[in-house]
């Protein structure tokens, strides 16, 4: 049994973090749901790199933020924002693949965000 991340999170979004990076925030209204996703091992540097088809070096951070019940995923940009050829100047349409991440109902032992 699993759920899609889009059905568990209260917000999934992306935005520039400066001109060289794009950051995705996955936020949860419910503490238990947040902890389930945090501990599921589905959002790690390796899984994010695979999802976006980039090297792990391009995944700057995958960090859980307990006080805010959110997970932040930061990627190096392919092009600095607004350079000729950059199709997403604000970086606000780069979160879509996260919707489809499958989160198992029972967390994998010992796995959590970023590990």
């Amino acid at each position: 049994m699993s759920d899609r991340l889009v059905d568990l999170a209260s917000a999934i979004r992306s935005k520039n973090a400066g001109i060289h990076r794009i950051t995705c925030d996955v936020m949860f209204a419910d503490r238990a749901v947040y902890e389930r996703v945090r501990d599921a091992g589905v959002l790690t540097t390796a899984t994010v790199a695979r999802l976006y088809g980039v090297s792990e070096d391009a995944v700057v951070a995958v960090v859980a933020h307990d006080p805010g019940q959110g997970i932040k995923i930061t990627l190096q940009r392919a092009l600095p924002s607004g350079s000729p050829g950059d199709p997403d100047i604000l970086g606000c349409q780069q979160h879509a693949p996260l919707y489809d991440v499958e989160v198992p109902s029972v967390p994998a032992a010992g796995a959590e965000v970023g590990s």
């Binding site: 917000a11 935005k15 520039n16 973090a17 400066g18 990076r21 950051t23 925030d25 936020m27 700057v60 951070a61 960090v63 859980a64 933020h65 006080p67 805010g68 019940q69 959110g70 932040k72 930061t74």
Partner: peptide, 12 residues
């Protein structure tokens, strides 16, 4: 909390 980490590379 979401806005505290808005447009930042790192949440905290």
């Amino acid at each position: 909390a979401a806005h505290s980490m808005y447009e930042e590379s790192h949440p905290h």
